[in-house]
Simulated assay, not measured.
Amino acid sequence: MTPEATPDLPRVLFVGGLGRSGSTLLELLLAQSPDVCAVGEVVHLWERALGADERCGCGERFTACPFWQQVGERAFGGWSQVDRDETLALKDRVDRTRHIPRLAKGSLGADELADVRRYADLYTRIYRAATEVTGARVVVDSSKHASLAFALRWAEGLDLRVLHLVRDSRAVAYSWGKQVRRPEVVDGEDFMPTFSPFEVSKLWTAQNAAFHLLASRASVLRLRYEDFTADPAGTVRRLRDFAGLPDDPDALRILTDPPAEPVRAHSIAGNPLRFSGGPLQVRRDEAWRTRLPRRSRAMVSLATLPLRVRYGYLGQHGTDPQSRTEETP
């Protein structure tokens, strides 16, 4: 069931889950339509954009990107009006995994509620400004953090729709073990963090379990990465419907042969894929099946077993025809 649109409220499709699950590729596909504005992982804006002036997905540094400067002007009267240190302190009080149990409650104390709504309002302002600058009807935020999604459910004046994106835990563990350079870093060289298979197992379970909890409190649509790559066009149509957008055949031109030139998104953080200027290729990455060490694979399989069963990842190929997109009203 598609959530009913609320007039005049900024509408955001929040992509949640654990990183390395295909969110950047999915976001870029959605951004090929003019009624969608993809902004990347806004949760990292305070450190990586305002703090380090890293490159936007368009290739320009944050301070040189016309889109983000217009957004800052409309949202806050300019980015210089945002107290970054105060925002980071507020983020620490609100947006951490350890805060999810209290954010999941039916009510909050006056001081807690004030903090959460103040923090969520920063994002609401950014989303609203992004729609005003671009004329888009929906903003895609691929921040993924469950704690931010829980905070946003307390926002005043926000139409929140959450996509819970899931990928086989063994594939995710393999991906987090690779060293990947961050091309958005201009002054020097930096790499995305790496995690051991055991650490990934804990993170994968915690994040996905958190979105199950959120589904009882907000509008959540669950999608497996493997189903997305098997049917990208169908996935885009389902997500546009979930976001309250009409079908747009032109949005799928990127998947034609030959593919259309992709529209680059003004994304904050994310997979280095966002900087590639070539055609977007949607294919299922199965390298983990031969490259993830057998012992690591066994450990991850066992540690994440309950949710792997729920998502249909017990078969030889990690797919189950009965396990498709699930929606929670």
Rank of each mutant, 00 (worst) to 15 (best):
Y311H: 14
R224G: 12
G135C: 00
K91E: 13
T256S: 15
S147F: 01
L163G: 07
T290E: 14
V82D: 02
D247T: 01
L148I: 04
D159Q: 03
R96C: 08
V139M: 01
F228G: 08
S201W: 14
P66K: 06
A151D: 02
G278K: 05
Q207F: 13
V116W: 10
L25R: 08
D247A: 02
Q32E: 14
P262W: 08
S107C: 06
T304K: 15
A104N: 09
Q69N: 15
S301F: 15
G278H: 05
G234I: 08
C58R: 12
P306S: 11
P246H: 00
A215V: 07
E112F: 11
D247P: 00
A287N: 12
V185I: 10
G278D: 12
K91C: 08
D159A: 05
E156A: 09
V220H: 06
V309Y: 08
A171F: 05
D250W: 02
P259W: 09
G51W: 02
L30R: 02
R181D: 10
G177I: 06
L103M: 11
T304H: 09
G234R: 09
R295Q: 13
T328G: 09
F150L: 03
P272D: 07
R96F: 05
E261C: 04
W68V: 13
P249I: 03
Q70E: 14
L160M: 02
R117T: 05
Y225T: 08
V116A: 06
S33M: 00
W204H: 04
P34S: 00
H212N: 13
A151F: 03
E189W: 01
E47P: 03
I126S: 02
R224F: 09
R48V: 08
H164M: 05
L165R: 08
G135M: 00
D187E: 14
L18C: 10
K178D: 03
R74F: 10
W204L: 02
F195K: 02
R170C: 09
E41K: 07
A155C: 01
P197S: 04
F198N: 10
A251C: 02
E199K: 07
V133M: 00
R253P: 06
F211M: 03
D92I: 02
L30Y: 08
V15F: 14
T256R: 12
V162T: 09
S175N: 07
R224P: 14
A89T: 13
V186L: 10
N208F: 04
F62P: 15
F195A: 11
Y225I: 11
A215C: 05
R291T: 15
A173H: 05
P249R: 01
A136F: 01
E156K: 10
V186G: 03
D83W: 06
A209K: 06
A104C: 07
L245W: 01
D111E: 15
G22Y: 12
W154E: 03
T2S: 11
R11E: 04
A129Y: 03
V12R: 09
V236F: 03
H164K: 06
L148W: 02
L245C: 00
V220Y: 04
G177R: 08
R170S: 10
L9G: 04
G234A: 13
P34N: 00
S23A: 12
D121L: 07
C37V: 13
D111V: 12
W79F: 13
A75K: 04
Q81A: 15
C65Y: 11
T63I: 14
E54P: 04
L214N: 04
V162P: 10
L239F: 04
H44K: 04
S296K: 11
L152W: 00
A298V: 14
